[in-house]
Amino acid sequence: MLRPFALYRPSTVGEAAEVLAREGPDAALYAGGTEVLLILKEGLLRVRSLVDVKRIPGLDEIRRDDGHLSIGATATHRALERAPAVHAHCPLVAGVARHVANIRVRTIGTVGGNLAFADPHSDLATLFLAFDGVVRLASRSGERDLPLAEFVRGPYETARRDDEILAAVRLAPWPAGTAGAYVKFGVHERPTLGVAVALMRGAGGDAVTDARLAVGCVGPRPQRLPEAEARVCGWSLADLARHAGEVAALAARDVDAVGDLHGSAEYKREMTRVFVRRILLVAGARAAGRDPHEHYPHTIIV
């Protein structure tokens, strides 16, 4: 059961910004409802109005834009899974989208809603960190871009101001030849841990020239692990196969793990080590042209 509210249906981002400016914290953005309707039903959030941004034309657009993949805030997980632009430029994203929650949530839930809700146990923010994701926020005073790492501040907390709309997230596609992988683990409805990895290699060379490593769900917010990334750089695939454990140990050291229903901080830190190593090996194998079919219980590898 929902308590009464007024439903705004702006037809442009400008109109939506107008409503938000007027209503302030008494309004909540509504981009799919899979999260916001739940907390409204629970009474955890009480607002006077909902601002439905789903009807804003173009806000669900997924397209190549200036070398980036731009994903409109109201694109659903299902759209992400299927969009040709995603398959062309960030295919791993399509694969991960296929495993978000369940088919009903994927049908209705949106990328923007997911990011703006900032549930720490979610896949997209972690994954997008590995694509140097940047969110575009729009308000009456214009637009601003914010790296995802700065946007997500903590559990259910973002840098979005009450008068701002998350309009899109822009991902930097990995260069050709990059091997990427994503793993999530956990027995609960939402993941206990998610790790995204990318290994970039120079043209023709075997050595890793650059790397991305992002870990999420284990702490208050997803994080990149720069020291672990740096450690991989310069390694050959053989080095990686031999020394992945070192990187994993760095990741486990640096990750900000907190205990909750999903497990203790200690366990999550250890799982970070386990899965960073595993996923590095998967990515390394992919870089070498193999596709290892690793199966672990309660684990999804994309």
């Binding site: 439903l7 739940l38 299902r78 929650a101 369940n102 009903r104 949530v105 049908t107 209705i108 409805e189």
Partner: peptide, 26 residues
């Protein structure tokens, strides 16, 4: 469950499954 976990309220919306418990009728 009323939280989009269980699927007991599933209906098809333009052919796609949605949770009617967490979907505005409008």
């Amino acid at each position: 469950c009323d939280m989009q976990v269980c699927g007991a309220c599933t209906v098809l919306l333009d052919g796609a499954p949605v949770s009617a418990c967490t979907f505005l009728a409008v």
